[in-house]
C-alpha cells in the first residue's frame, strides 16, 4: 500500500470512477458466474442422481429400475414425481419383471469423527437388510473408514435380520453391534477389530433407522408394488 495515495481526499469525479469500476467488474463477474452455473447445472444434477442411483443399485442386489417414494403426513408412501426431494424419501427397487426387490432408505448418525450417512436396502418380504453402503463418513483413515471397505464388515448387511415383532409395529430384535468374532444371531453386527467406536456407531444408526422404517415399509409394501405395475403399463 502506498501511503500517499491513501491520504488524498477523494474528489467527486474520483468516486464516480470508483463506482464505475466496481459496478463494471461486478457485472462482468456476475455474468460469468451465471453462465457457468447454467452450463454446469444439468451435468451436476445428472452426476448426483447417478451417484445416488449407483448407491441404490449397490444396496439392492439384482434390481433393474428404481423409483422414489415420499412419506406423507399420514405415514403413507406416495410416488414422487419430478423435483423436490423434501421430507422423508425411500427408493424402491424392482427387478426386470417389475417385482419389488426392496426399498433403500438413508440413515445417519454420529460416528467417531463426524456424522456418518449410510444407505441400506430393506427387503420387506424376507424382512431383512440386504445391502449397505456408506454415503459419507469422515472416520479415521485406516481404522474407522474400514466400515466402508472391509468385506467382512459389509457381509454383516447381506442378510441382517430385522423381522417385525407380532404387533407389526416394532422390531423383534433391534440390530446391535457385538464384539468382533462373537456374532451369533442374524440381527447382530460383527464389529471390526480396532474400530470399535465406528462399528458401534453403525450399529446404533442401523438399529434406530430400521426400528423406524421397517414397520412403515412393511405395512405399506403394497403401495410400492402397485406403483411399479402401474408404471409398467404406461
Amino acid at each position: 500500500m502506498t501511503g500517499t495515495d491513501q491520504i488524498q481526499t477523494t474528489a467527486p469525479g474520483n468516486s464516480m470512477k470508483m463506482l464505475q469500476a466496481m459496478v463494471g467488474i461486478g457485472i462482468i463477474c456476475a455474468l460469468m458466474i451465471v453462465l457457468t452455473f447454467q452450463g454446469t447445472l444439468p451435468i451436476i444434477k445428472k452426476k448426483k442422481a447417478e451417484a445416488l442411483e449407483k448407491a441404490i443399485f449397490k444396496v439392492l442386489p439384482g434390481i433393474e429400475k428404481t423409483k422414489t417414494f415420499q412419506l406423507d403426513q399420514n405415514n403413507n408412501f406416495a410416488a414422487l414425481e419430478g423435483e423436490g426431494q423434501e421430507g422423508k424419501v425411500a427408493y424402491a427397487g424392482y427387478d426386470q419383471d417389475g417385482k419389488l426387490v426392496g426399498v433403500a432408505v438413508e440413515a445417519s448418525g454420529q460416528g467417531y469423527a463426524d456424522i456418518i450417512r449410510v444407505l441400506y436396502g430393506y427387503d420387506p418380504e424376507k424382512q431383512e437388510v440386504v445391502g449397505f453402503y456408506v454415503l459419507e463418513s469422515k472416520e479415521t483413515p485406516g481404522l474407522g473408514d474400514k466400515i466402508e471397505k472391509d468385506p467382512a464388515f459389509q457381509a454383516n448387511f447381506s442378510a441382517l435380520d430385522v423381522s417385525l415383532a407380532d404387533d407389526q409395529s416394532t422390531l423383534k430384535n433391534k440390530p446391535v453391534t457385538v464384539k468382533n468374532g462373537t456374532k451369533e444371531n442374524p440381527w447382530e453386527i460383527d464389529a471390526i477389530t480396532g474400530a470399535t467406536i465406528s462399528s458401534r456407531a453403525i450399529g446404533e444408526i442401523m438399529g434406530a433407522s430400521t426400528e423406524y422404517w421397517a414397520p412403515l415399509i412393511h405395512k405399506n409394501k403394497e403401495a410400492f408394488g402397485l406403483k411399479a405395475n402401474e408404471n409398467k403399463q404406461k
Partner: peptide, 22 residues
C-alpha cells in the same frame, strides 16, 4: 482505481473460484 483495487481483486478471484467450484 487504487482505492478499490483490493475489493476488485477479491471480486474477480471469487468469481473464478465459484466457476471452478461448479
Amino acid at each position: 482505481p487504487k482505492q478499490v483495487r483490493i475489493a476488485s481483486y477479491i471480486l474477480i478471484i471469487a468469481t473464478f473460484v465459484t466457476m471452478t467450484d461448479y
